[in-house]
Write a protein that binds this DNA or RNA. Structure first.
Lengths: 66, 66
DNA sequence: ACACAAAGTCAGGTGTGCTTGACATAGTCA
DNA sequence: TGACTATGTCAAGCACACCTGACTTTGTGT
């Protein structure tokens, strides 16, 4: 599952630790999602989408055509 | 995490087993999601949204105000 | 009463999302 | 050089998302 977390974070000039704090998860969890090691849980995906005021589908991409 | 799976399924007159087949998961997985015992993984949430041609946020509700 | 389909549930197992704590590396700056 | 920040990574552990297989319950129809 690809995602735009790193870009969205860079646009706001946040560190991984700063983003982790805003999402109430560990810094390692943010890193693992950004580097593609894990997909977030659905509740965490909701928190991420809400934080950036976007839809989940606009942040994450599971690669299926349509 | 609340969801509208049961209603969407009823609108199409599908059994849990039929929906499970279309999502490529077990019947018990569908049942657990409908009865609120589990949240789906993000990839499964994407498959569900795609199957019903809706956004994830229109099917699932994590209860946060905005 | 009987058969059947759908739904719900349980046990036992596997894989993963997330945790804390620790450590390595690279970049910046006094 | 030495201190500090950001990032990446590892290990060990916990909780949960899924699995198969089996069983019970409920509703429908003969």
């Amino acid at each position: 599952m690809k995602n735009r977390l790193k870009v969205l974070r860079a646009e706001r000039d946040w560190s991984q630790a700063e983003l982790a704090g805003r999402l109430d998860v560990s810094r390692q969890a943010v890193n693992a999602i950004e580097t593609g090691k894990h997909d977030p849980s659905l509740p965490l995906a909701f928190r991420i989408a809400r934080l950036f005021d976007m839809r989940i589908e606009d942040i994450f991409d599971d690669g299926e055509s349509a």
